[in-house]
Design a protein around this nucleic acid. Structure first.
Length: 576
RNA sequence: CGGGACGUAGCGCAGCCUGGUAGCGCACUUGCCUUGGGAGCAAGGGGUCGCCGGUUCAAGUCCGGCCGUCCCGACCA
C-alpha cells in the first residue's frame, strides 16, 4: 500500500509557465512528469503507473488478437535502414550516431526494418504464417517541434505491432483484427474516438486508418460524414470529381492581357477585375524531389500538398520560394499562370468548371482573362488536389461533412510488400514457390494516449481519470492525522482495500484537509474515502466520486465493502 | 529551419526603459496555533540574475555573440 507521505508525487498549486494545453499542465501540476529537455521527460511514480496501465490494456488486447510480444533494441545498425532505403529517405528526424569503431547507428523511430530482418531469418514456410509480433518500447524521433508535453515528445513509448501474412487476403483479415483490437483498447480507456482514413506518410503502404481522440486541442483536423461511416483526416479526405467534361479545345479566341498593378492575392485580383474568385485559375508552384510542378485550381479552394505529393510520387514537396518563382515564371510571386509555363502543370478537378477564367500572366503587374483550360494550356492531368472544405459533400454518399479536431493516438497501416520486398522476406508456399510476405504495421502512442485521456477528462480542479488508467483507483483520506483512532481506522480501510487488489493511495500526510482534497482532485483519483472527525465520532465515513462529485455517507463497518462495489462498477464501465 | 516571445531562489513573478544595497507571493526549515476545500503568527535557510564577451568607476539593468525554453507554420504515435 502506498503512503502519500513517502511517495514522490510533487503537486503544485501554480501552473508552470511553459505548459499550454490541459494535459501538459495537469501532468506537471499533478506531479506525474518532469521535463528533462525539450520533448524529453522523466516519468514520476504516479505518471509511470498511468503508462503501465495503458500498456497493460494494450497488451491484453494485442494478446487477445493473437499477437505475440517481443522486444527490439532502440539502437539499430545503419545497414538495415540502408537496405530499406529509409536511411536516406527518413530525413533529420532519424537520430544518427557512430560507435567507437565508427560504425553508423540510429535510434529507432519505428521498427519495420528490425522486425522484417528478424522474420526473414526465421520464417521459411507458409506454415509459419500468419505471424503478428508487437513490442512496447522506447522510440526516439528528433521532432522539428516537440509540443504539449507528452503529446509530441522526442522520446516516447510506443506500442508497435507488425503482421506477416501469406497473401493480401490474409493481410486484410489481420488488419481487420487489429482495427477491432484498437477499438477495444480505446473503449477500455474511456476515450471518445473515431477511426479515420489517413495518408500513409513515410511509413508507406497502400492504405491506413488513424485513431483520433476527439479533442479541441487536437493537432489534426478530421471530417466525418453525418449520414454514413466515412471519416478521414483532412489531408486525406477526398473531394469528388465534380464539374463535367474535359474542357473543349475548339473554343475560338485567345486570352487577353490586362494590367493588375500590385494585385497579387486571389482576393485582390478578383476584386480588381470584378470576377468571382471561383473563376480565377490559381497557380501554385512547387519544388520537389521530382522536379518543379505547377498546380492549378479554382481560386476558391486551397491546395492539398499531400495530394500533390502523392500524385507525383514525390518524397517531399514544398511551395516554391520567391527566387524559384521568379526563375520559373520570370515574375514575382502573385502573377503565376499556366499559360506558356515551362514546367509540368497538374490541374485540380475544380478547374474543369471554369469554362473561361483569369490567371497570372507570368509577368509583373499583369493577369490574363478569357483563359480557356484545354485551349490555352493543357494540364498533364486532372486530379483531386484540393483541400476539403466546409460545405463539401461526402465522397461516398453525398451527405453533409462535419469538421472536428482530433489527437492521433493510433495508426494502422496495410504495408503490402514495401519492406518485405526491400529486405527480401520470403517464404515457400504450398506449391514450393517463393513468395513475398505481405505486411501490416500498427502503432499506438502510449504517453500520447494518456495525455489524450486527460484532454477529454478534466475540469477546473484537475484530472478526472477513467478508472482503467488512473494512477490510483481510490484515495483514502483521513482529515486529521493527529486524531489517532481516526487515522488508524482510515489506515485499516486502506490496507483492506489494498489486500483486495485495489490500487489505493493512503494520504497519511500531516496536512490540512484543504490541501489533501485539492491534491486528490488534481491527481484525479476516481474515488475518495474521507474520514472526517464528526462523521467518525458518529460511526461514519464518506465515499466521494471525483467525476460526479456525488458523496455517500456510509457506516464505518460497511465502508470497505461499499468501496469495492464502487470500484467494481467503475471497472465495468470501462469494459467494452 | 522561418516568424514571435521569454530566461532573476524549487514554482509563479517584479526589478531592466532612466546602471549604484537583488525583491515579492507560494513552497521549504523551526516553534506556537489550527484541522471538512491550498489557514494564522513568529523566526529562519536558499539566487555565480542562462553562458561568454564588450561599454563603464560601477552591469540583473546598456551593446554583441552563443545556449536554452515556449508559441505559430512544414512532420508524426
Amino acid at each position: 500500500m502506498i503512503r502519500y507521505s513517502r511517495y514522490l508525487m510533487p503537486t503544485t498549486k501554480e501552473t508552470p509557465s511553459d505548459a499550454e494545453v490541459a494535459s501538459h499542465r495537469l501532468m506537471l501540476r499533478a506531479g506525474l512528469i518532469r521535463k528533462v529537455a525539450s520533448g524529453i521527460y522523466n516519468y514520476l511514480p504516479a505518471g509511470l503507473r498511468v503508462l503501465r496501465k495503458v500498456e497493460q490494456i494494450i497488451r491484453e488486447e494485442m494478446d487477445r488478437a493473437g499477437a505475440q510480444e517481443v522486444l527490439m533494441p532502440a539502437v539499430i545498425p545503419a545497414e538495415l535502414w540502408k537496405e530499406s532505403g529509409r536511411w536516406d529517405a527518413y530525413g533529420k528526424e532519424l537520430l544518427r550516431f557512430r560507435d567507437r569503431a565508427d560504425r553508423e547507428f540510429c535510434l529507432g523511430p519505428t521498427h519495420e526494418e528490425v522486425i522484417t530482418d528478424l522474420v526473414r531469418r526465421e520464417v521459411r514456410s507458409y506454415r509459419q504464417l500468419p505471424l503478428n509480433l508487437y513490442q512496447i518500447q522506447d522510440k526516439f524521433r528528433d521532432e522539428i517541434r516537440p509540443r504539449f508535453g507528452l503529446m509530441r515528445g522526442r522520446e516516447f513509448f510506443m506500442k508497435d505491432a507488425y503482421s506477416f501474412d501469406a497473401d493480401e487476403e490474409g493481410a486484410a483479415e489481420t488488419y481487420r483484427k487489429m482495427y477491432d483490437a484498437y477499438c477495444r483498447i480505446f473503449r477500455r480507456m474511456g476515450l471518445s474516438f473515431r477511426a479515420v482514413e489517413a495518408d500513409t506518410g513515410p511509413i508507406g503502404g497502400s492504405s491506413s486508418h488513424e485513431f483520433m481522440v476527439i479533442a479541441e486541442s487536437g493537432e489534426d483536423a478530421i471530417v466525418s460524414c453525418a449520414d454514413c461511416s466515412y471519416a478521414a483526416n483532412v489531408e486525406k479526405a477526398e473531394c469528388p470529381a465534380e464539374g463535367g467534361d474535359e474542357p473543349a479545345a475548339g473554343v475560338p479566341g485567345s486570352p487577353r492581357k490586362v494590367p493588375t498593378p500590385g494585385k497579387r492575392t486571389i482576393e485582390e485580383v478578383s476584386a480588381f477585375l470584378g470576377i468571382d474568385p471561383g473563376m480565377l485559375i490559381k497557380t501554385l508552384l512547387f519544388e520537389s524531389d521530382q522536379g518543379d510542378v505547377a498546380v492549378v485550381l479554382s481560386g476558391r479552394y486551397e491546395v492539398n500538398e499531400v495530394k500533390v505529393k502523392n500524385r507525383i510520387g514525390a518524397e517531399w514537396v514544398k511551395l516554391a520560394g520567391e527566387d524559384r518563382v521568379r526563375k520559373i515564371t520570370g515574375a514575382p510571386s502573385g502573377y503565376a499562370g499556366p499559360v506558356g509555363l515551362a514546367v509540368r502543370v497538374l490541374a485540380d478537378h475544380s478547374v474543369r468548371r471554369i469554362a473561361s477564367g483569369a490567371t497570372g500572366a507570368n509577368e509583373k503587374d499583369a493577369h490574363l482573362v478569357d483563359v480557356v483550360p484545354g485551349r490555352d494550356f493543357r494540364p498533364e492531368s486532372y486530379a483531386d488536389l484540393r483541400l476539403v472544405e466546409e460545405g463539401d459533400r461526402c465522397p461516398r454518399c453525398s451527405g453533409p461533412l462535419r469538421f472536428s479536431r482530433g489527437i492521433e493516438v493510433g495508426h494502422v497501416f496495410r504495408l503490402g510488400t514495401k519492406y518485405s520486398e526491400a529486405l527480401s522476406a520470403k517464404y515457400l508456399d504450398a506449391g514450393g514457390k517463393d513468395r513475398t510476405i505481405v505486411m501490416g504495421c500498427y502503432g499506438i502512442g502510449v504517453g500520447r494516449t494518456a495525455a489524450a485521456a486527460i484532454e477529454q477528462h478534466h475540469d477546473e480542479d484537475g484530472i478526472r481519470w477513467p478508472v482503467s488508467i488512473a494512477p490510483f483507483e481510490v484515495c483514502v483520506l483521513p482529515v486529521n492525522m493527529k486524531h489517532a483512532s481516526l487515522a488508524k481506522a482510515a489506515e485499516r480501510v486502506a490496507q483492506e482495500l489494498f489486500e483486495k487488489g485495489i490500487d489505493v493511495l493512503y494520504d497519511d500526510r500531516d496536512e490540512r484537509p484543504g490541501i489533501k482534497f485539492k491534491d486528490a482532485d488534481l491527481v484525479g483519483i476516481p474515488l475518495r474515502v474521507t474520514f472526517g472527525e464528526k462523521n467518525f465520532e458518529a460511526g461514519f465515513g464518506e465515499i466521494r466520486d471525483r467525476g460526479t462529485g456525488a458523496t455517500d455517507r456510509i457506516e464505518l463497518s460497511a465502508i470497505t465493502a461499499r468501496v469495492l462495489e464502487a470500484v467494481e462498477r467503475k471497472r465495468k464501465e470501462c469494459t467494452p
